[in-house]
Design a protein around this nucleic acid. Structure first.
Lengths: 261, 261
DNA sequence: TGCTTTCTGATCGACTTTGAGTGTTTTTCA
DNA sequence: TGAAAAACACTCAAAGTCGATCAGAAAGCA
């Protein structure tokens, strides 16, 4: 191997990494004809730049999508206390015997955990993860309908199959988690197909309850699901700014503020 | 297997776990070419990180260990070697670019583990667990359609929603696991709704491949799915009795016997 | 040329990983 | 129930890896 500029050398390391998914210090040292110390220095620089992840013996590519989805589990941990409060407040709206729809989201996921004890519940959801909560609880008086479709990264089943299935169903109440809400743009989500599925949820429900923690206010996602006024009830945290509460109060009939402290 | 960095090794363990739902210390040791002690250390580290749950002999996914799911996981363990052999044989029938249907079952679950690497695959299934295998693998060239419905104890989504969804779809090939088969009653299953869903799978597929280990022969479930002759291909173990092979050969065009030893 | 800056390689003590030995615990099966 | 087999955890020595440090080499600049 001819002499290489440091820049080329690092480029080469990244190429190797892309080719094999891993590089080891000893191999690079031998292959490039440089000392292990220099290889380590290169790896350190590349790691600092976020190009790779150092591990004992060498380095690997960052993405670890295969292990645990950070998208869902981690997000649940973030605003967990407030989400729990919203979920508790939402669960109070559910009576035994009702049919309930839960779209996919971390707040509705938290809500699901509080619903497994309610008798004679029929649950409709497009989230395999939420369905799993009820499967595990195995409450014989409950029935769970999982809507089919293709899965988005945020664990929602969407697409033609999902909307077609929802068109056939009618539920008493739909709890809907969203990604953003503003006075102008209403409820929004970053995923177009999810927005479509959520609209199908709305059509299938006699009553629409939107659950959204205070951090959702002021955020506009790519796609509008509905105007603010479409929701019959909005459940949010009592740490929402008074101005926001004021604006929301004008559009939405019932505003429930869950205690967050 | 090339030398692996510890980090990669652990990821590999998690991949195996996602594919098969369980891993064994001895198998991993042999497969990765490392001592059992090192495998145990890896499992301990992964268990400490909450990525899996250690059990005697190996490790399982958190889900199946905490939630009571005797129907599925245990059954997989029983005839695992033969099921694996069938799955391998079945996977050979799949070409890149195909659309494939997998009904719910332990054999098709095993098959799913061998399909995650096939490019441009479209997978249709009514098993959340099988869908999860593909979600975890996260192969960007594959798309997974999960059929909706209500869930049976054996992890199948069935009912009107399921059959309606399948009526809209057409796949090149359907792999179907069954519970019993005899000359008189054909392929059978104990669950009526599952039988119905399986018939919908058949209608949606250009080619029907039934996968059934030798223990299924002579068993009649409550509900007939189809006559023996309906299957284009039957994949079973070579430890099936010669008489059964003879009878099956008369009804079914192609009989594939997977080596079980 | 002489000076500074940057890069490099060797050394070395500290740390990590690994597999084998050994005794204990768990499981299996008669 | 009890013995054999399998799986387990603990420990230790060897091998491998790491980063701090320092001296020399190379490159940039006046």
């Amino acid at each position: 191997m001819a002499e290489m500029l440091p820049q080329q050398r690092r480029r080469h390391i990244l190429d190797e990494l892309n080719k094999y998914g891993q590089v080891r210090v000893t191999e690079l040292s031998h292959e490039l004809g440089i000392s292990e110390m220099t290889v380590r220095r290169d790896l350190n620089a590349l790691a600092a730049a976020g190009e790779l992840v150092k591990v004992h013996g060498g380095a690997t590519r960052e993405q670890s999508a295969t292990s645990i989805e950070p998208g869902f589990t981690r997000k649940l941990g973030l605003a967990a206390p407030e989400k729990e409060a919203l979920a508790l407040r939402a669960a109070e709206l559910i009576e035994p015997g009702m049919s309930v729809a839960l779209n996919s989201g971390t707040t509705t996921y938290a809500l699901a955990g509080h619903c497994t004890g309610i008798a004679d519940l029929t649950v409709v959801t497009n989230s395999p993860r939420i369905a799993e909560v009820f499967y595990s609880a195995d409450n014989p008086s409950q029935s769970v309908i999982l809507i089919g479709g293709i899965r988005t990264p945020s664990d929602a089943l969407v697409g033609p199959l999902a909307t077609a299935a929802l068109a056939q169903l009618h539920v008493d109440i739909c709890f809907m988690g969203i990604h953003g809400m503003t006075a102008e743009d209403g409820f929004t989500t970053p995923n177009m197909l999810e927005a479509q599925a959520n609209q199908a949820f709305m059509s299938a429900a006699a009553e629409l309850v939107v659950v959204a923690d205070h951090s959702k206010w002021g955020i506009t996602g790519l796609c509008q699901i509905a105007e603010l006024g479409t929701a019959d009830v909005l459940i949010t945290g009592d740490n929402l700014s008074p101005e926001a509460v004021d604006i929301l109060g004008q559009s939405i009939e019932t505003l429930l503020l869950a205690p967050t402290a």
